[in-house]
Amino acid sequence: MIKKVRGLLLKDILQTKSYFITNSLICLLFLALAIFEIVLMFDNSALPGSDAEQLDLLKSFINSSFFYFCIFPIYSSSGIALCFQQDERCNFDKFAISSGISRKLIVNERVIFGAIASIPGVIFTIVAAILVSMINNPYVSSLTGLYLALISFGGYFLTIGVSLTLCTFLGSVKGRIWTSLATILTFLLQTVAFVLYAAFGIEHILQGSIVAIGFFTISIAIFIGAYFLSLRAYLNKDF
């Protein structure tokens, strides 16, 4: 089973080599931008004095930096769509299924590939979350970074689940268009979560945890639902 998945993953990774390189480079670029913004905003010499000013500064940072935490989950979704596109182009599914590879295994492999495609983004998210936790601000704790990371990870689950379902149902061409639209929706949902966190979660740990853990839990629930929906559709699909 693991050996078969390894074979299928090798195929997808070899086919999407350039995608991985681009993905990693963009990750590095955005990481550099995030570091630049943190240094610029929280440089000790430029820090405002009062707690209220510092709180406003942190809120303003979170409201402006959500983009970094949202962009990579979105980028990772195109990994799955690309994988579908490559397989459809050469009718690989037809070959694999008729040669004895189970349909369930193919769906599982695509989810795993989606996770692998997200690795550069996940690394970025973790590094960015650690950097945020280290910001010199009285309202920042290790939970601040964790919550921002949770909202970001929720985005990964959402985008992988949604793109898997859409591409399974609609095929890579239509699926990719709809995935793009769904990705914008995911982006908006994440934005709302970040705005809510900035508005209510920085000062109050409980409210912060409700927003972050709530968004993360809902995302996982949607991902699980999307997985089973895709699996069911794929098991009944005619080639």
């Binding site: 490559q86 050469c90 009718n91 690989f92 037809k94 070959f95 008729s98």
Partner: peptide
Amino acid sequence: EKLDFTPDEICLPDNL
């Protein structure tokens, strides 16, 4: 795996 279907075209990634 004892059964194999071969369509009229190669169903493998042609860029590999």
